[in-house]
Design a binder for these strands. Structure first.
Lengths: 135, 135
DNA sequence: TAAATTTGTAACATATTTTATTACAGTATG
DNA sequence: CATACTGTAATAAAATATGTTACAAATTTA
């Protein structure tokens, strides 16, 4: 769910990195993304599951980073928000009686695996700090 | 339209490459992909626009490659079927009054551009012949 | 300790995108 | 001239993504 997950999560983390000592509310964050606060909280829930942020409930509550932005890479964000990059598959199972249909997905898999390795290598070199410093 | 475009088009071209002298019907191709023939014809329409295949109407008609599989790269297919690879954007326009919201998409663009360069470089090295020989 | 504010989450609604179907005109073949 | 194709438009259905409402639970602060 949420196909803008990576972008939204990166946006959230960029904001948090700008105020590393403050608890930012989902409503404040939602205001920057222009997104429903509930969806922000869903992404934060995912971030918490991955020990990237912590939240405080109640009045003056909110969310903040659990570790320095220099120790979070875009690859970490990617892993939390994306399965893999893929150029897609046909929706239905191809005909197993056709030599091409039988193995097309397998061969696409190999290709997409290669692509993902390249992307992962690239994203691993960029920290949240790097990304955030662009703003 | 059609998010499995790349996979479907690659499947079509792989089939055509296996029978470079025959006109294959959209129904035959659809049978291998397990896809509606109309959608196959739509993708073929795109391939024709790009001068990769030619079609013959009427009885015993169909589609065949216009050039050898060794002269078509996966990057060619990619260009015809994909805009760019992206890890997504938030759906709504971010808050322009927030320094992060104001420039998040621009900065994601840079990142996605880099990713696409890598993917393009990789796909350019693989011909349809290479891909087809895996089967 | 009560009011206010915030998270957490479920349930549901809407919007968007993708895929499928139907229909039929046009074209070539035999 | 019957048959088997392509080409394409219009529409329907299915899948996915996003948005909304509602409310319990937690925490702060007055």
């Amino acid at each position: 769910m949420i196909s803008g997950k990576f972008a939204i999560t990166t946006h959230i983390l960029t904001l948090l990195s700008k105020f590393p000592n403050d608890y930012l509310s989902s409503e404040y964050i939602a205001g920057s993304i222009n997104l429903n606060p509930v969806l922000v909280r869903k992404e934060i829930s995912n971030l918490k599951k991955n020990h990237i942020v912590e939240s405080k409930e109640g009045k003056n509550g909110g969310t903040r980073l659990l570790k320095p932005a220099s120790e979070i890479t875009l690859h970490d964000i990617f892993k939390m928000t994306f399965d893999t990059v893929s150029l897609g598959y046909a929706k239905n199972q191809p005909n197993p009686d056709c030599p091409v249909g039988k193995r097309i997905n397998e061969n696409l898999d190999f290709l997409y695996l290669d692509i993902n390795e390249k992307i992962n290598a690239q994203l691993s070199t960029i920290t949240l700090e790097d990304f955030s410093n662009q703003f």
